[in-house]
């Protein structure tokens, strides 16, 4: 009888030990969710959408795996796979964050570089305007170009604002448009000056 009691008691202890071993990885889940939120802060959705999607997929897979384990009998639960996936989400999130930041920086640099190039082009146009002969020939054409330069400059001011606000893709569209117009103004101006000089 005593042996029987001991056996039942041993089973009960083993059962308690088993059930208390497999607990859902709540800390890892919280960390993984926080890591994804951190990637959102650097606009990963916008700058590395495919990577961001993969990251979210992984988190979802892990959460469903947790649910899968929860569905099992306590003795059979194992959160190892889910924990490993959650840990990999954390690692991946760091990479996605870095990649998003790099891509964002690239686009930012591209926008800033384009802005600098177009600003130089506008300066060249203004220098040509200043150096253009002031005679009556072509005066109206020069004045018209001057008016256009003012418009291109106001466009560039908008580009600067967009860059400062972090909207680099829209800034790129705008700066490219301003660049095309500035280049055509330079050509128009050079032609106007050539015509003006023809008589001199």
């Amino acid at each position: 009888m005593r042996n029987l009691v001991k056996t039942v008691f041993a089973f009960a202890i083993a059962g308690v030990l088993f059930t208390s071993c497999a607990k859902a990885p709540e800390v890892e889940i919280t960390n993984a969710k926080a890591a994804i939120e951190a990637t959102k802060a650097v606009e990963a959705e916008r700058y590395v959408p495919a990577e961001f999607k993969a990251l979210q997929d992984s988190l979802n897979v892990a959460l469903l795996e947790v649910e899968n384990q929860n569905a099992k009998f306590a003795l059979f639960r194992s959160y190892k796979k889910a924990t490993a996936t959650l840990n990999s989400v954390n690692t991946m999130a760091e990479q996605v964050k870095a990649n998003a930041a790099t891509r964002k920086e690239e686009v930012k640099n591209q926008a800033q570089q384009s802005l600098a190039e177009v600003t130089t082009l506008v300066t060249e146009v203004k220098e040509l305007l200043a150096a253009a002969p002031k005679g009556k020939e072509g005066k109206e054409a020069l004045e018209a170009i001057q008016g256009d330069v003012v418009l291109v400059e106001s466009f560039l001011a908008e580009v600067s604002t967009l860059i400062n606000n972090g909207d680099y893709l829209t800034a790129l569209d705008k700066v490219k448009a301003a660049g095309e117009k500035a280049a055509s103004l330079k050509t128009e101006l050079e032609e106007a000056i050539a015509k003006t000089k023809k008589r001199r």
Binding site: A144, G147, L151, D173, K174, K176, A177
Partner: peptide
């Protein structure tokens, strides 16, 4: 008049910007 030229240049700038956004499917 100068306004007509200004409107024309503005239209061209906005058109070019739209074209760039269209090209990147935005």
């Amino acid at each position: 008049n100068k306004r007509a030229r200004r409107d024309f240049t503005n239209a061209k700038l906005k058109y070019l910007e739209s074209k760039k956004a269209y090209e990147r499917k935005a």
